[in-house]
Amino acid sequence: MRRREFISLMGVAVGWPLAVRAQQPAVPVIGFLSSRSSDVDASLLTAFHKGLAETGFVEGHNVAVEYRWAKGRYDLLPAMAAELVQKPVAVLVSTGGTVAASAAKAATRTIPVVFTTADDPVKGGLVDSSNQPGGNLTGITARLIEAASKRMELLHELLPMASTIGLLVNPTNPATLIESSEVQVAARGQRVVILSASTERDIDLAFEGLKQKRLDALLIAADPFLFARADQLIALAAQEEIPTLYFRSEFAQAGGLISFGSNFADFFRVIGLYAGQILRGAKPAELPVQQPTKFELVINHKTAKALGLTVPPSLLSQADEVIE
């Protein structure tokens, strides 16, 4: 009897440290919600981890990250955001346009959300103001939508004679309307034709119809799904021999003619930084929404030559990168 008691006590004594260890708070979990896919966002993740490291966090070491990839299907985002909130996560990161940020915002009012948006976050209803977000959301804006008018201006500088310009948009992205109006404002007598595509097939169809529409040039609207289809777009533009202007430098680097936009991948570092700061106790309401200062113009001279285009010196002098 006594011996049995002793053994059971021993069991308690041995089991105790294990129980204590189990009770210790687990490493914090960051929910990562993206409307794109992991391969497309690879460069963003690198910047994200860099930002996290600046606050002393290393994934798998003292922080865990739960990834959710919508792969262009924006309708999946609300459910994914809700699932991450249910886990729960300590911080929710949303990237891939205002659609993802809105889904995150809808899913929680308490868990801090660090978002990326291409648009104005105040107009998009994400925050009260850029300097004082006020709620549980903060993040960065890439100002890609705002830059649409500049892209139209640059396209005019490249092709002063172009009179009909196509704008390829993703109709499932609410920012589409804003962007098309920006483009219209910047138009100097050119006709702007809106092309819609929210699936891979749509893109093919849109390019098939180019010839009939007699388009002189094409603008690609800033949209996560369209960025995810970069290879397809570049290939089709080459095939259809249509001068195309894109919103991220990755396009031009991959063979697109010309791109203008902020260096999103570099800037994404702030997302990791903010997520880390929030884990360390910072309040999202007090972290201002950051904006990029640097916009890069990248010209692919090779593609220009293939299209038989001469890039004017005024444009070349502005280019941050010219791919020969």
């Binding site: 200062t293 640097k294 010196p313 005024s314 002098s317 502005q318 280019a319 941050d320």
Partner: peptide, 19 residues
């Protein structure tokens, strides 16, 4: 003055702080 326009654009590129 087209020349001056190009100079101004080049300056923008040269000095990132200028908006």
């Amino acid at each position: 003055d087209e020349r001056r326009r190009i100079d101004a654009l080049r300056l923008l590129r040269q000095v990132p702080a200028i908006v």
